[in-house]
Simulated assay, not measured.
Amino acid sequence: MPLYTISTKRPLLDSDQQALVSAITEAHCSITGAPAQFVQVVFSRGVRLRSRNIVHILGSIRSGRSDKIKSELASAFVNSASQILCCPRSRCSVDLVDVPASWVIEGGAVMPEPGQEQEWLARQPG
């Protein structure tokens, strides 16, 4: 958690996929303060996207993030996708969905609420 699904009509180059994973992870961590190990990114290709979109990013993030944080995340993702895929920002879209932390299990333990990550990590084995 969070889980970001990047959907495209056509397959992406491996280098573009890695660049998107790095950009999304960096943005999520710097904006929310969450550890990088929480961020999961998957790719879905051959997807019929709305309108003239080239890429759509769907993020399932823990509930409790402010509208300001969600806006910053969406903007960072659009900027990164536009740069990496060399396409106009208007052809990139982002949707973020709030998911209660209590609905997610990571490494066999229920995820912490935003801001409680360090205490949660300290309690995890290994």
Rank of each mutant, 00 (worst) to 15 (best):
S7V: 04
G115E: 03
Q17R: 15
I69E: 05
A101K: 06
G59W: 03
K70T: 12
L121C: 06
L20F: 07
V94F: 01
L85M: 02
R62S: 03
S93G: 09
A76M: 03
D98Q: 01
I54R: 07
S93F: 10
G64D: 07
S75V: 09
L96K: 12
G126M: 14
T8H: 05
R62G: 01
A27E: 12
L49K: 14
S66L: 05
G59Q: 08
D95C: 14
P100G: 02
S7T: 06
G64S: 10
R65D: 10
L121G: 03
K70I: 07
A109T: 10
V104I: 14
G108S: 11
G46I: 09
R65G: 09
V47D: 05
I84T: 04
K68D: 10
P114S: 01
A23P: 07
V39T: 05
V97M: 05
R65H: 15
C92F: 06
Q116K: 12
Q118N: 15
R62P: 03
R89Y: 02
I31S: 00
H56N: 13
F77A: 11
D16A: 12
L13V: 15
C86Q: 11
A76S: 11
S22I: 09
S90T: 15
S7D: 03
E72M: 12
A81M: 03
R123P: 01
E119Q: 14
S15T: 13
E119G: 11
V55I: 13
S90V: 13
S7G: 05
P100E: 01
S71D: 11
R123C: 06
R52K: 14
T32G: 00
A34H: 03
G126H: 12
G33V: 08
W120S: 01
A74Q: 06
S93W: 11
D95M: 14
V78Y: 01
V97I: 13
L85I: 05
N53I: 15
Q18Y: 04
Q83W: 01
G59K: 09
G59V: 12
R62F: 00
W120R: 01
T5N: 14
I31Y: 00
S44L: 13
E117I: 00
V110M: 02
L12M: 06
R50D: 14
V55C: 11
G115R: 02
S51F: 05
C92I: 07
S80Q: 04
H56G: 12
S44H: 12
S82H: 02
F38R: 02
S71A: 15
Y4C: 13
V21A: 00
G115Q: 03
E117V: 00
V104Y: 04
K68W: 00
W120E: 02
R45K: 08
A122V: 12
F43R: 10
A23S: 09
Q37D: 02
T32Q: 00
E113F: 04
S75T: 10
G115V: 03
S7W: 00
G115K: 02
S82E: 04
Q37G: 02
R48A: 11
G108Y: 10
R48P: 02
E117F: 00
R50S: 13
Q37Y: 00
S7H: 02
G108W: 10
Y4M: 14
Q17A: 08
T25V: 07
D16H: 12
D67C: 06
A27P: 08
V47A: 10
A74Y: 02
K70Y: 06
D98I: 01
W103N: 15
